[in-house]
């Protein structure tokens, strides 16, 4: 047990270190911006006073190392600073500015909602189909499934999105093509409005997950102990449930976690297509108007989620390995 605990702790520590290094990479990347930050924000025609005020606000007169420490401290205390857009707004006399944290929080919630709905549809579907494809491999079902999943993996997310809009919103008005959800909306309506983006993501993720599940199960079914179980005269059901499944858990959990990590990238494009008010759309909007503090914060959140999911996959597969769970 202690060796298992040590391995898990090692992985956790490694994850933390990675996250730390990633934060440095993101910070340094942003500081590769040419010239003065403040001028870049305000563009031509900025008054010297406003430039100076922004510079003071952002602490640009400090050396880079201190600014990094400040930024990291802010990130850890969820004080993500204020966006350029809001700063500008304030500079021109606007009142009641919101911080990045206040901007991101509801959107992060929306994105999590979308990801959860997607996972709830995609995971059972993909795992079932993947196991079926593995059991009936090289049949017509498997070949057709292979063609469909390959096509789905190959298509850009926005293609899937528009095809779904065409069939499920325009030709057969079942779901709305715009996902204008807001706070306080009843759950059923929220679900309905999130359906098309969720289905789009499902199509993409299911294809990946199904192929990986199929490969993992086929790999497993080829192992001598499965043959042994069959040669003991066990029923096909028992072979699967008792002999294949306990060993398939690790690879399947791994597949699920990896694909949820993949969702992170997919969510950006899909949110833009459906104008879904999630963190992906905020990120893209901020990229377009070069709102560096927001871009930086979103980037770190995405990276953290990505690292966390990969770490989960890693630890789960360690935990479900009997060789590690029962050391010699």
């Amino acid at each position: 047990m202690s060796s298992l605990l040590r391995i898990v702790l090692q992985r956790l520590a490694l994850g933390l270190v990675t996250l730390f290094v990633v934060s440095i990479v993101i910070f340094v990347a942003v500081n590769l911006l040419p010239g003065d930050f403040a001028e870049a924000i305000l563009g031509q025609g900025a008054t010297p006073e406003s430039v100076a005020s922004i510079r003071r606000d952002l602490g640009l007169d400090q050396p880079m190392f201190f600014r990094y420490i400040d930024w990291l401290k802010g990130m850890l205390t969820l004080d993500l600073g204020t966006s350029f857009a809001q700063l500008n707004f304030a500079n021109f006399g606007g009142a009641g500015t919101t911080t990045i944290a206040e901007q991101i929080a509801p959107r992060l919630g929306n994105t999590m909602f979308l990801a959860t709905v997607t996972a709830a549809i995609a995971v059972p579907l993909a795992v079932t189909l993947g196991i079926l494809a593995a059991l009936y491999r090289n049949t017509a079902f498997d070949k057709i499934a292979n063609m469909f999943t390959l096509s789905s993996i190959s298509s850009p997310e926005f293609f899937m999105a528009y095809v779904l809009i065409l069939f499920l919103a325009v030709l057969n008005p079942i779901f709305p093509s715009l996902s204008n959800i807001f706070e306080g909306m009843p759950f059923s309506e929220r679900l309905e409005k999130s359906m098309l983006p969720a289905l789009t993501l499902t199509l993409v993720v299911t294809a990946h997950m199904m192929r990986m599940t199929r490969a993992a199960i086929i790999n497993l079914l080829a192992s001598p102990y499965i043959e042994m179980a069959r040669l003991k005269g066990l029923s096909p059901m028992r072979v699967i449930v008792k002999h294949a499944l306990p060993n398939a858990l690790a690879p399947i959990i791994n597949v699920i976690a990896l694909n949820l990590a993949y969702l992170i990238t997919g969510v950006v494009v899909v949110e833009v297509v459906f104008v879904y008010p999630g963190i992906g759309q905020l990120f893209v909007d901020s990229v377009k108007i070069r709102d560096i503090p927001v871009v930086q914060a979103c980037c770190l959140i995405f990276a953290a989620a990505y690292i966390l999911l990969n770490l989960t996959a890693d630890i789960m597969s360690i935990l479900s390995n009997p060789r590690l769970r029962h050391p010699k």
Binding site: P224, Y225, E227, M228, K232, H243, P246, N247, R323
Partner: peptide, 13 residues
């Protein structure tokens, strides 16, 4: 049936 590789033919779980 008794297989060639006992290590691979026993279910590790």
């Amino acid at each position: 049936y008794v297989a060639q590789s006992a290590a691979a033919s026993f279910n590790p779980a």
